[in-house]
């Protein structure tokens, strides 16, 4: 079923409203401070500049009209905004790798081992997918505080590792793989850990690829939990750092640096998506239509 060309026209026009905000963001990033709040605004930066990333003309002691801190000068932490990009990267990689490893182990046992209780366990995990995670926000905050994990990497990573939807997806996928593959290895004398590492993980590769894209994007952009967890500037991830910029600096002229931060937050995930687009749409469709 395809629409007639004339019916398609409004949707082509609608795509302009998709592109325009992104365009506005990008041109704001490359405008000098004085051009940002000019009326009428320029739609191509007249004096393109990188000052919104780092402005060499800015000095904290000397007022210099037309110069404000670039995004990398806004926070008094080592490496400035680079520190938050590093934090986000560490957290995202650790959660992605860790959650896939433990979920694949559990999925292997649930689908290929005849252990008592596996059905009940699986049922509980599936039921938990209907729970809004915000319900656990207050108790988890208290747990983090009691463990002394507020403001730490482990506070970001450890509570985020057991992901029910990942386990569910991997179980579905493993059901479609014949048990004989595992049994053959067992006959050959391979141990369970070895079977998991050498046979199950390679077989799961397409499923792991699809899931890792979901996890990477979700964790890179995660906001509410970090907002509650993080106190210092040093431990902020990119979204929390951007939200703080938004509270600290309100004037229109600061929007150049803020949009530069937004661009640095968005570019990695957009590039990541464009590279892995194929797996991504397949993942959405598999988890959505089969789940």
């Amino acid at each position: 079923m395809t629409a007639a060309p004339l019916l398609r026209l409004p949707f082509y026009l609608l795509s302009l409203t998709m592109i325009a905000p992104f365009y506005w963001m990008v041109i704001t990033v490359f405008k000098p401070v004085t051009e940002i709040d000019r009326q009428p605004p320029s739609f191509v930066p007249e004096h393109p500049t990188l000052d919104n990333f780092y402005d060499p003309g800015y000095s904290p002691t000397q007022v210099n009209p037309g110069h404000l801190q670039g995004i990398f000068q806004r926070f008094q932490v080592d490496f400035g905004f680079g520190r938050f990009m590093f934090n986000s990267l560490v957290i995202t990689v650790a959660i992605t790798a860790g959650s896939l490893l433990i979920a694949s182990l559990a999925a292997y046992v649930i689908t290929k081992h005849r252990v008592p209780g596996r059905r009940l366990i699986f049922l509980m995990i599936v039921a938990s997918m209907m729970v809004p995670w915000q319900t656990t926000l207050v108790p988890n905050y208290v747990i983090m505080r009691n463990l002394g994990w507020l403001d730490t990497y482990q506070g970001y990573i450890v509570p985020a590792l057991a992901k029910a939807f990942v386990l569910f997806f991997l179980v579905q996928f493993l059901h479609s793989i014949p048990d004989e593959l595992v049994q053959a290895a067992r006959v050959d004398g391979a141990g369970e850990w070895r079977i998991w590492w050498r046979i199950v993980l390679p077989l799961l590769r397409p499923a792991l690829a699809a899931m890792s894209i979901f996890i990477v994007l979700a964790e890179w952009n995660n906001f509410l939990w970090p907002l509650i967890l993080v106190q210092s500037d040093e431990m902020a991830n990119i979204p929390v750092a951007l939200a703080r910029l938004n509270s600290y600096f309100t004037g229109a002229q600061n929007q150049g640096a803020i949009m530069a931060g937004g661009l640095l937050a968005s570019l990695p995930s957009i590039v990541f998506f464009l590279v892995f687009q194929r797996y991504f749409t397949r993942g959405i469709v598999l988890s959505g239509l089969k789940g």
Partner: peptide, 24 residues
């Protein structure tokens, strides 16, 4: 071995989802 392989997921699931849910 099976339970040992289930343990990491189950422990984290219980500690940061089931228990907090009951607690909340």
């Amino acid at each position: 071995t099976s339970y040992l392989m289930l343990l990491p997921f189950l422990a984290l699931f219980a500690g940061f989802l089931v228990w907090p849910l009951a607690n909340s």
